[in-house]
Every structure is written in C-alpha cells, then in structure tokens.
Design a protein around this nucleic acid. Structure first.
Length: 526
RNA sequence: GCUCCGGUGGUGUAGCCCGGCCAAUCAUACCGGCCUUUCGAGCCGGUGACCCGGGUUCAAAUCCCGGCCGGAGCACCA
C-alpha cells in the first residue's frame, strides 16, 4: 500500500496499538489468529533467470546494434563479449545486428586477411550470425564524400602542423594557423591529398571542435591521414585513410545504429564524434561502455599481445588450447551456449572485471556432463601384475551415469594404472580397480599385487577406487593440455567418440580430436 | 597533471534511475554431507558483501556533500 507511505507516522501508531492488542490475547487465541492468516502470506517469488539490464529507450523491432572489430587477429573471449552482448540485446528487442569491420589502418593495426573469415565463422558458431556485414575499407569513397561536405561547410580543415607542433596548440588551447583555410583552398588541398601529391605526415584533415574544450583530447581531432601502404583487402587503391573516430561516426549514422555498447576506452570518441553529428544535424545513438575483462588464467585479452607470442613460437597457433581465442575454445569442445552464458553473467558494468575461467567451466560442465561418455585414460602409466587371478573376465562399466549404456574392458592380470596412484600405495594396502576387482600390493619394487576378490564392499570408497586399463587392449593417447600435455593409454572404446567431448574419469573432460598412430585429445576442463 | 567514470561476500553479478516488500539476488569458489563404484564428476546443505565519514528522511545499498581506493582517455592505433 504505497499510498500510505506519506502517513507512515500515523500507521506506525496504529501498528503499535494492534501489536499491543494482540499481545494481550491468550496463547490459544494467538495461535488461532496466526494460523488463520499465515495461509494468506504469499510464498517467496520464484527465482528469475539472470538477464541483461534493459536498454534505455529501446523499442522492440527498432533496435539496430553493431559489433565493430578490427580483424587483426581471431576473435578472443574479449571480442566474444562484444559479439554476444550486442547480439543478445538484438535478440531481446527483436533488432538488427550488424558486424562491421573497422579496418581503416593498413599499417599500425594492420588487418589480417584470414581473420575476416574467422570473425564470420565464430559469430555464427556463437549463435550470433550478423544480419548484415560491412567492410569499412570497401566504403572509403563514402567517407570522402562526407569529408568534402565538412570542408565545404568549413567544419574541417587541412592541417600542415607536425604532431608536435599541433600538440602545443592543443595543450595551450590556441587555434593553429591552418584552421582558417577557406573552403575553396581546403578542397583544393584535399584533392591533392587524394592524388598522392603529399608525403605521409605532411598534412591531415582535422575536424573543428572547440580549441578551448576543457578536455584537450577533444580539441580539433584528426579525421584523415595519408598512408602509402597496401591494404590486405583493397590493395593500394587509397592513400588517404579515415581514422576510427571519423569512419565509425559516419557509419553509425548511415547504418541507423540506435545503441552502441563498447569498451570505455572509446568513451571520448563520443565527445569527438558528437561534433560531426551536430554539423550534419544527426542524432547520436545511445551509448553504454564497459570496462576491461581479464581472466585470471589467461590475463588480459589483447590480440596484439597474443600475436607477438605466437610469432615468437610460444604457441602452436591461434587455436592452441592454452589461448583465449574462440577458435581454441571451440577446438577444446566448449558449447557456444556455455560461452554466451559466461559472458552474459559478466553484465555490462563500467568497472573492470577480473574473473576466473572456472565460471566458464562450470557453465560448460552443466551442458556436457549429461551427454559425455566416460572412458579410462591412464597417464604416466605403470604396468602392474595381479597374482591369483587366473582367467580374463569381461568388465562392464557404465558409459554415462545419466544416459546409461555400457562399455566393456577385458579384465586381465596385467594392467596399467597411473603412476601417481601407484606411488601412493604401500605394501599391504588394498585398492579397487573401478568396476573390476580388489587387489593388494605385495611387492612395490616388482609392482606385484595379489587378487583379493570382486566384492566392492570389501574396500572403503573414495581414494581407494582407481581406474585402470588392460595391458593388451589399449591405444596410445596424447592430450594437449592447458598447463601441460599428458601422455599415456586410453581404452579402445573411446575410438567410437572421435570428434566428441568425453570424460576421462578422474582426469577431465576432453575432446577427442583424431586417431592415426595414437589418439589425440584436447583438454576441455575438469 | 588535465578530463571522465566506477567501488555490493574470495570472484563475478542483480538491486541504484523512481528510498520502504533488501536481516540484499543468482552464479562460481570454499567448507561439510550424500552416492551398490569418478572423493578430480554428480547430488544436497552451509559460511560469506552494500569502501569510509557526514547530511536529508519516520525510513538510505539506493538521494546529497566530503574523503579514500581503483580504472579509462589525453595518437596522423583500433
């Protein structure tokens, strides 16, 4: 009853009276009243699924959003955040999702040709297939047009100051001498720029803002510069390239973007770009910015850093399981839904987040645990002998506790077990080979055990149950790990699951990748 | 230094705009229990937080002021 709030004092008095009246009643009467009214109390509201917070001013069916990477490497978990969050909002509001390659610097942040394709692939895999794909480098003439308009309007000008010179003007809030160039002269210089009549660095186009703006970063920023370098996608067609701020400002308008969500490092962009929007009478999209994500186990998710390390030979490639790229996660057998959930759980706050990859593992585990078949993998194997077990027996072991089903191993007197399990045992100890039999260590140096029976209840549970493999019925197995690689033997039954994620019991979930001379697997997570 | 932003359990997040149903949500981590067989999986349970100080108010995680701590930008990179 919210309308009573303003009369809180009066209500409080009334409540006190009621309580006093209630207290004065007999115990029996109290109990009766409690029972009569407790039925009316509502149960606690059922828990709601965690969702993204609503977008301000978003109308269903009218939202247009974009993710705008520079394809200078494959998408990482960081890029996936941009893809998934933008896509998710589009899904919520029935909007349009655009993938735009902001690839207008052929040198410093040079795009990588294969990466264009990788972005497309990974978006689709993440269930975020864009409704439209735009390549900025293929639309350079459009940006030229808008530049010319601004030059005509004298809202932009060619500036011959060197970087250092201009910095002085900027820091002291003084207009540089080129700022007053007439539209006519400016267009003439522009023409010469396009014709390649200037050297790199000789002249740039600046957007007029306010040389007295309280944030120097906003003052007359660069919109175009000259770079003589082949572009991986469009070759040497252009020598005048727009900066991100210009290209993105024009594109966001042309594409009808209504909402932008991007990193807070681009917060100043908005301040700069608003000048262009004002000159053309356009409406600036609604923006939100998020902080950096770092994953404890991976560190910062910088593509350029990864590239250096790959080039230095530290990793086997962009899909090395130790890397935070989507390709690597894909190879490891993660489910796209798990990655989406993990990313959405980070929200869209402005503070930097530092989260453990275990959260991602947990999401993925929920999805694969019910379907992944179980197999034995013995890493760092030790061969042991079991005395007193005369014949081979078929051992039936469940394939998956939820799905059901069985696989069969040949129980024999010569088996492999993990070295770490073996080392832990002392002479006289009993262990159980899971689903097979109990054995007692009688000679550690000779790795000899004695058969003690098949009954499970004869051994304690827990650490006393270990996995094993028959010596004569195994394949060699190599696991590409995250911390390190593992070598050993796996059961042959696993060959039925090539391409799938399985659980190597007491080890981890792994994706079985290939089988040639040996089984190759990639570590997924515990 | 200048400009802008943020601070909820160990970690991440919901709630903040529009103060009360918040002795604060969900997840993960951690701890404990359960399972005729994974004690590295699964299932169940438990511990654990509103940065600090002041103000406004009957009432503050929520509004205001100050402090402290953290981050981003200040490129002819994106």
């Amino acid at each position: 009853m919210p309308e009573l709030r303003s009369k809180a004092k009066v209500v409080l008095e009334l409540v006190k009276e009621c309580v006093a009246e209630f207290e004065s009643l007999s115990e029996e009467k109290k109990r009766e009243l409690i029972e009569r009214y407790s039925a009316e109390l509502k149960p606690k509201a059922e828990k709601k699924e965690q969702k993204l917070s609503p977008l301000e001013k978003a109308e269903k069916g009218k939202v247009v959003m974009r993710f705008a990477p520079n394809p200078n490497g494959p998408p990482t978990l960081g890029s996936a955040r941009g893809i998934v969050v933008n896509d998710e909002y589009c899904k919520i509001y029935d909007g349009k999702f655009i993938l735009r390659f902001d690839d207008t610097d052929p040198r410093t942040k040079r795009p990588m040709l294969e990466a264009y394709e990788w972005y497309l692939e990974d978006c689709e895999w993440l269930d975020a297939k864009p409704d439209e794909v735009v390549y900025a480098s293929k639309r350079i003439p459009i940006y030229y047009e808008y530049c010319e308009k601004l030059l005509e309007m004298e809202k932009a000008y060619p500036c011959f100051c060197s970087k250092e010179e201009f910095k002085k003007y900027r820091d002291s809030g003084i207009e540089c001498p080129h700022r007053n160039t007439s539209a006519e002269d400016a267009l003439e210089i522009w023409e010469k720029m396009l014709n390649g009549e200037f050297r790199e660095g000789e002249v740039v186009i600046r957007i007029k803002t306010d040389m007295k703006h309280k944030d120097p970063a906003i003052r007359d920023w660069v919109a175009f510069r000259i770079i003589y370098e082949d572009h991986p996608l469009v070759g040497d067609e252009f020598c005048v390239w727009p900066t991100l701020d210009f290209e993105s400002a024009i594109e966001d308008h042309l594409l009808g973007i209504t909402h932008i969500i991007r990193g807070k490092d681009l917060r100043d962009s908005e301040l700069r770009q608003r000048y262009i929007y004002e000159y053309f009478g356009w409406e600036y999209p609604i923006t939100r910015h998020w902080g950096k994500v770092s994953i404890h186990e991976f560190g910062k998710l910088s593509t350029s850093e990864l590239r250096k390390e790959i080039e230095a030979g530290k990793y086997r490639g962009w899909d090395d399981p130790r890397l935070p790229t989507i390709r690597a996660l894909r190879r490891r057998g993660f489910k796209p839904e798990a990655i989406r959930k993990f990313i959405l759980s980070l929200g869209v706050g402005e503070n930097d987040v530092s989260v453990s990859v275990k959260n991602l593992y947990a999401e993925n585990r929920k999805l694969i645990d019910p379907i992944a078949n179980r197999y034995f993998f013995v890493w760092d194997p030790v061969e042991i002998k079991i005395e007193g077990l005369d014949s081979c027996v078929d051992v039936k072991i469940p394939l998956n506790p939820t799905k059901g089903g069985y696989r069969v191993l040949k129980g024999s007197k010569e088996v492999y077990i993990c070295r770490e399990d073996f080392e832990r045992l002392r002479e006289g100890d009993i262990v159980r080979l899971k689903d097979f039999c109990n054995i007692r260590l009688i000679d550690k140096d000779g790795a000899k055990f004695k058969f003690e029976g098949f009954e499970l209840k004869d051994v304690k549970k827990g650490k006393n149950i270990i996995h094993w493999l028959p010596k004569r019925d195994v394949v060699k197995c190599y696991v590409y790990g995250v911390e390190k690689d593992y070598e050993g033997f796996a059961e042959k039954n696993a060959l039925n699951d090539i391409g799938n994620v399985v659980q190597f019991e007491r080890f981890a979930f792994c994706r079985l990748e290939a089988f040639e001379d040996e089984l190759e697997a990639v570590y997924t997570h515990p």
